[in-house]
């Protein structure tokens, strides 16, 4: 759905993240939502209510339709999180998973 304009400095994106296991290269300051789009995904999740596919809508933290799992933590706003080297992003299908082991330890 989106592609990158060639950059002014010609430098290649240096950060590596994975989206559903597939590597994506980003520049510092770019968000996880951008990674989703550049990886070719239109949707980053399905809804807990009806299982409908959704993608980022507002890109500024208002709509919460970009919720994904980042480094094992569900319900993160992809548009509000800057990518970091080695980040593991998973699209979130339905309600986020509760980690029973962690939840029961407290």
């Amino acid at each position: 759905m989106f592609r990158r304009l060639p950059s002014a400095d010609g430098g290649a994106p240096s950060l590596r993240v994975t989206v559903d296991g597939v590597p994506v290269a980003l520049r510092p300051g770019e968000t996880v939502a951008a990674a989703l789009f550049l990886a070719g995904h239109k949707a980053g999740r399905t809804t807990p209510v009806t299982g409908s596919p959704r993608g980022p809508y507002c890109m500024m933290g208002v709509c919460f339709d970009c919720l994904v799992e980042i480094d094992g933590e569900g319900n993160r706003q992809a548009c509000m999180v800057e990518a970091r080297e080695g980040m593991v992003v998973m699209r979130q299908m339905g309600a986020r998973a509760l980690d029973d082991k962690k939840a029961s330890s407290c």
Binding site: R3, R4, R27, G29, E30, A34, M59, M60
Partner: peptide, 15 residues
């Protein structure tokens, strides 16, 4: 506005 944010932050444009 969302598409414009993608342009500003990532230089990303519709393919």
């Amino acid at each position: 506005g969302a598409a414009q944010i993608l342009l500003k932050t990532t230089g990303a444009v519709p393919d």
